[in-house]
Nucleic acid binder design. Structure first.
Length: 367
RNA sequence: CUCCCGUUCGUCUAGCCCGGUCUAGGACACCUGGUUUUCAUCCAGGCAACAGGGGUUCGAAUCCCCUACGGGAGGCCA
């Protein structure tokens, strides 16, 4: 039996938690022993025992006895982290503590406290930390990637974020990477936890996110994309659902993120789209786009049904008559109507835009 | 300053506990080629790592030691 300040303090705190206790208390409600805080805070060092384990990992345990006294209650009477933490755990009946490796060397302190309170310490396990993407040190609140709100506002999918984060410091030991939360929960185990810290990498997160994004059914995709396009000023609040969905059906397979979606498909919604100069000059090198467009404009204006198949056969017929391949007209058509060199399949794209828009844009382009 | 933990491609990692099957595997990124009207899709290929040194051993990424580097905790933050 080794009397200690910790035990004394534990009694004092217990008393202070008891409403019927009328003993002397500090102004802020703490009952204090007559010793100075410093004396009370003194702790004894116990030899380590099995409970002082650091991590349940490959049978490796960290056994470490606390050797230095540490502060329980500050000079101003407020309780320190270690004390608060342990009391909280005891109050909530915590049995297992899984937390970051930054607490590895705190664990022995906490074990001592549990012992002092006469409570069986919980099992401790520690997981590696996530390091900042750039620079040194662990990731903390202010660092890039640390805020869930940031993922939300940038349109990252929750499944992707969860999936990515779960892979930092743990993996299922097979080649599997893409896992939903149920699969992760099923597969998670302590031996799968890595020893070393992991560095956050947004590129990998983005890749996962893009994967999930393309898997979404069009209704979900539209539901998620709408507010983002709204916010970007690309689409108005009352935008037509059918048109929006038709556009997104074409753009989803090309989408890399919701964040960049407005750049990808903005021209579907505004006539004020930017012209990619580089793409323009590249196209102009081969042939005169205005001339080509002049040829097909009447066809587009007069074609009976403005759908992809009809457009295809009409344009093909025309191309043959000019002894050209139909594809010769594609780059100019795309550039005039979207300002870009790439995008969804051209014909379906024109069909979705509709005759009015397409014809107007080509006229505008020809000047 | 003290104590603790870690170190495999640029990054996340498999392999390490139970040495040989590792000319070290996968993924992201990057590069090349193919497909495609285009493209941020898709397919194929490529680049690229066992921190350094010693030891044990027939044999070490794998076991032991040292060094270096990284990370964490403690000196009344949580």
């Amino acid at each position: 039996m080794r009397p200690s300040g910790c035990v004394l303090l534990a009694c004092a705190i217990r008393a202070s938690l008891d409403e019927n206790d009328n003993g002397p208390k500090t102004p802020d409600g703490w009952r204090t022993p007559t010793n100075t805080v410093r004396d009370v805070a003194r702790l004894f060092a116990l030899p380590s025992d099995a409970e002082q384990t650091g991590r349940e990992h490959r049978g490796g345990r960290v056994e470490r006895a606390e050797e230095m006294d540490f502060v329980l209650v500050r000079k101003d009477g407020s309780p320190g982290f270690h004390l608060v933490n342990v009391i909280d755990d005891i109050t909530m009946g915590i049995t297992h503590v899984i937390r970051g490796e930054d607490h590895l060397s705190n664990a022995s302190k906490h074990v001592e406290l549990f012992n002092a309170f006469g409570v069986k310490p919980p099992k401790f396990a520690h997981i590696p930390l996530i390091l900042k993407e750039e620079g040194s040190g662990k990731m903390s609140k202010r660092d890039k990637g640390a805020l869930i709100e940031e993922y939300e506002s940038r349109g990252f999918l929750a499944v992707a974020v969860r999936n990515y984060i779960s892979l930092l410091g743990w993996n299922p030991k097979d080649e599997r990477e893409k896992m939903d939360i149920d699969e992760i929960i099923e597969l998670f185990d302590f031996p799968g936890i890595n020893k070393g810290n992991a560095r956050f990498d947004e590129k990998k997160l983005s890749a996962l996110n893009a994967d999930y994004l393309r898997e979404l059914n069009i209704e979900s995709f539209t539901f998620l994309a709408r507010p983002i396009l709204n916010k970007a000023g690309v689409v108005s609040e009352d935008a037509d659902e059918d048109y929006l969905q038709a556009v997104l059906t074409l753009c989803q397979p090309k989408a890399r993120s919701l964040e960049t979606l407005s750049e990808l498909c903005g021209y579907f919604f505004t006539d004020n789209y930017a012209m990619d100069e580089k793409a323009g000059s590249k196209i102009a090198k081969k042939s005169d786009p205005k001339e080509l467009l002049g040829e097909v404009l009447p066809i587009l204006e007069s074609i009976k049904s403005f759908d992809a198949d009809s457009l295809k056969s009409a344009l093909e017929t025309h191309a043959e008559s000019k002894d050209q391949k139909v594809f010769a007209y594609f780059p100019a058509l795309r550039y005039a109507t979207s300002g870009q060199a790439g995008g969804p399949d051209l014909l379906p794209m024109l069909a979705v835009m509709g005759r009015e828009r397409v014809v107007a844009r080509i006229k505008q382009f020809i000047g």
